Amino acid sequence: MPYYCDLGPGQKVYLDNPGPTTLITLASGSAGQQQQSSTQIHTGPWTEVPQIARVGSGALLRCVTAQGTYTWQIQGMQIGAAPTNAWVADQATPMQATEVGLSSMASMQPMAPMEPMAPMRMGDMQMSMNPMTMRMGNMTLGLDAPAASTQQFCTQCGAAIAWGDRFCGSCGHQLHQP
Results as ranks from 00 to 15, higher is better:
109 Q>M: 14
19 G>A: 05
64 V>S: 11
3 Y>V: 01
116 P>R: 09
82 A>G: 01
11 Q>P: 03
100 V>E: 14
107 S>C: 07
123 G>H: 08
115 E>W: 02
85 N>D: 15
95 M>Q: 06
93 T>H: 13
132 M>K: 13
6 D>G: 11
93 T>I: 11
136 M>W: 09
131 P>V: 02
89 A>N: 05
15 L>M: 06
146 P>N: 00
173 H>E: 11
21 T>G: 07
105 M>C: 15
89 A>D: 09
163 W>H: 06
149 S>Y: 09
12 K>R: 15
120 M>V: 15
52 I>T: 01
130 N>Q: 13
164 G>A: 00
44 G>D: 05
71 T>V: 15
165 D>H: 01
72 W>Y: 09
18 P>D: 05
81 A>C: 03
144 D>W: 12
38 S>F: 01
55 V>L: 10
94 P>K: 06
61 L>S: 00
108 M>T: 05
103 S>P: 05
48 E>D: 14
86 A>R: 02
143 L>G: 08
42 H>T: 13
171 C>V: 02
116 P>N: 08
2 P>Q: 03
41 I>K: 04
113 P>K: 04
87 W>G: 00
172 G>N: 04
90 D>G: 00
160 A>M: 12
144 D>A: 04
57 S>N: 14
120 M>R: 15
155 T>A: 15
102 L>T: 15
27 A>C: 11
